[in-house]
């Protein structure tokens, strides 16, 4: 009796394992999409650029025969994955430091390093009329100001520089809260737990709250660079696409600056 039920149990476990281990592309749902036959391009993208990258990918897929798979994370984490041979073809970083380091270590296709966007910083509050252009709100009107961690995130470092340039860095210390990345910083402000925060201009919601686009000369420019990690046609095509007028227009619409404007 007992051995029989153990046998049945083992058999059902085995069949479940077999079903689950079958490659996803052989499932009927995947076959229905024409995408499965397309050549795949894996793109690692810094979180602040994810939304823009999604739209770029859609546009790119329309005009090419390739399919793009996006993996997002902080630039530091993606960098660590790349040097440990993660299977990415293109890396859209949020800074120049990590791409430069990859280039120096010979981990990218030579001369593929290029600036694809220049980030802008925005002081944003989920409350209407709280943030006004050209100055920080008076310190006694809020209890928390959120920035990304300057040690981890390029936007955090820019935020620190901007606050220093505004002469507020020292005084603001007790009110500072830090997100691990710029997406989390946005969460702190959007949920209202922090009354305001310095986030990426690309994150500012269209019709919500109040905003001041921080002048770009208050901090070092947040150049975001792309590198090609493997030599193959799909990656080349995507890198070229990033420089096309259509892509540049999309990137600018999402709140980024570009070189040569």
């Amino acid at each position: 009796m007992l051995s029989q039920s153990i046998f049945r149990y083992a058999l059902s476990l085995l069949s479940i394992t077999l079903i689950l281990s079958a490659p996803a592309t052989s499932s009927p749902a995947a076959n229905m999409s024409a995408n499965s036959s397309r050549e795949m391009l894996r793109v690692a993208v810094a979180t602040n650029f994810l939304n823009t990258a999604r739209e770029l990918a859609r546009e790119f897929e329309k005009q090419s025969a390739y399919r793009i798979v996006l993996s997002s994370g902080s630039t530091g984490k993606l960098y660590a994955q790349v040097i440990n041979s993660a299977p990415f073809d293109v890396f859209l970083a949020a800074d120049t430091e990590r791409p430069e380091r990859l280039e120096k270590d010979g981990l990218i296709i030579p001369a593929s390093r290029t600036t694809y966007a220049i980030g802008r910083l925005a002081l944003w509050s989920a409350a209407d009329d709280f943030v006004r252009p050209n100055a920080l709100p008076p310190a006694n009107s809020y209890s928390h100001l959120a920035i990304a961690n300057p040690r981890l995130a390029p936007y955090g470092r820019a935020a620190q520089e901007a606050l220093q340039a505004l002469g507020a860095w020292e005084a603001i210390q007790p009110k500072l809260v830090m997100g691990e990345n710029i997406a989390q910083t946005f969460q702190f402000v959007a949920s209202g737990n922090a009354q305001l925060g310095l986030i990426a201009a690309s994150q500012v919601p269209a019709a919500r709250g109040s905003v001041w686009l921080i002048p770009a000369d208050l901090h070092q420019s947040i150049e975001q660079q792309a590198v090609l990690l493997n030599e193959q046609p799909a990656g080349r095509a995507f890198m070229n696409f990033l420089r096309s007028p259509a892509a540049r227009k999309l990137i600018r619409e999402h709140g980024y600056d570009l070189n040569g404007d």
Binding site: S74, H144, R151, L152, M178, G179, F188
Partner: peptide, 20 residues
């Protein structure tokens, strides 16, 4: 909110060290 001396715990400090 990763505030040193107030809410920055060990696991977060480790994470920051790894990231940097």
């Amino acid at each position: 909110g990763n505030i040193p001396g107030e809410t920055q715990v060990l696991s977060i400090a480790i994470y920051d060290h790894v990231e940097t």
